[in-house]
C-alpha cells in the first residue's frame, strides 16, 4: 500500500510541467527514501532525475518498494485538475494497475479522486556516480532561462565557458553571433539573486540549446539553478525543490570527432 500526502500540491504540478516535455513515459519509484524518477529522453542525450524525500510529505506510507509506470502527459492532465492550493494525495494498492490522485481544497469543502491506469515501461536505469566538477555556477534560475531562450533565437548550440572572469554563454548562427558573460556577483540584496562561481579549473563545453531550454521548464520550482561542468562529463543542471529534494537534468555534451 502506498499513500503520499503532499500539502503543497502545487509542487507536484510544477514537477510534472518540468519533466513532461523531455520524457514521455517513466517509472516513478517509491521507497522509504522518497518518491523518485530517473528517465532519459527518447534520443538518450538527456536524463532527468527527480527526488522528493519522504520527510517532505505530510504523510508518507510506502510498505514496499514500488515502481509505477506512467505516461507523463496523462499525469500532467490529471494534476492540472488540482487547484493550485490543493493538497494532493497519491494512492496505490499493492499489485494494482492503477494509481489514484486525490485533490483536497484547503478548507476541505471539495474532494476529488482521479484514477489513472498504470503502464509497463521497460526503462533503463543508469548508474550516476558522484563526481567532482571542474566548475559549478549558481545563478538565478530566471536569468539562466532568459539566456537559453535568447541564445536559441540566434543559434542551435551554446558553448559554456567558465574562467576566473565569469561564465560565458556563446552561440553562432546564420544571422550572427552572441556572447553573454555573467560575472560572479555576491554583493546583492538577496542571496537568490547572486551569481556564484566555484572553479577548480577553467572548462568549456558545447551543448544543444534545445535541451537546455527544455530544462528551464523547471524554473518555477526554484529561484536558483546550479550548473555543474566537467570536460569529460554531462553537464548537471539542478533545481532544488525547497526542503524536499531536486530535479536534476543531465545533458551530454557535443563530442569532438
Amino acid at each position: 500500500m502506498l499513500e503520499l500526502r503532499l500539502v503543497q500540491g502545487s509542487l507536484l504540478k510544477k514537477v510534472l510541467e518540468a519533466i513532461k516535455e523531455l520524457v514521455t513515459d517513466a517509472n516513478f519509484d517509491c521507497s522509504a527514501t522518497g518518491f523518485s524518477l530517473q528517465a532519459m529522453d527518447s534520443s538518450h542525450v538527456a536524463l532527468v532525475a527527480l527526488l522528493l524525500r519522504s520527510e517532505g510529505f505530510e504523510h508518507y506510507r510506502c510498505d514496499r518498494n514500488l515502481s509505477m509506470g506512467m505516461n507523463l502527459g496523462n499525469v500532467s492532465k490529471m494534476l492540472r485538475c488540482a487547484g493550485s492550493d490543493d493538497i494532493i494525495t497519491i494512492k496505490a494498492d499493492d499489485g494494482s494497475d492503477t494509481v489514484t490522485f486525490m485533490f483536497e481544497s484547503p478548507n476541505q469543502d471539495k474532494i476529488a479522486d482521479f484514477e489513472m491506469k498504470l503502464m509497463d515501461i521497460d526503462s533503463e536505469h543508469l548508474g550516476i556516480p558522484d563526481a567532482e566538477y571542474q566548475a559549478i555556477v549558481r545563478m538565478p534560475s530566471g536569468e539562466f532561462a532568459r539566456i537559453c531562450k535568447d541564445l536559441s533565437s540566434i543559434g542551435d548550440t551554446v558553448i559554456i565557458s567558465v574562467t576566473k572572469e565569469g561564465v560565458k554563454f556563446s552561440t553562432a548562427g546564420d544571422i550572427g553571433t552572441a556572447n553573454i558573460v555573467c560575472r560572479q556577483n555576491k554583493t546583492v540584496d538577496k542571496p537568490e539573486e547572486a551569481t556564484v562561481i566555484e572553479m577548480q579549473e577553467p572548462v568549456s563545453l558545447t551543448f544543444a540549446l534545445r535541451y537546455l531550454n527544455s530544462f528551464t521548464k523547471a524554473t518555477p520550482l526554484s529561484e536558483t539553478v546550479s550548473i555543474s561542468l566537467s570536460s569529460d562529463l554531462p553537464v548537471v543542471v539542478e533545481y532544488k525543490i525547497a526542503d524536499m529534494g531536486y530535479v536534476r537534468y543531465y545533458l551530454a555534451p557535443k563530442i569532438e570527432e
Binding site: H125, G127, A252
Partner: peptide
Amino acid sequence: DSIQGTMYNFYEKC
C-alpha cells in the same frame, strides 16, 4: 566537427 554524445558515452546501465 563534433557529434552529439549520449548518456551511454558517460554512464553505465545498472
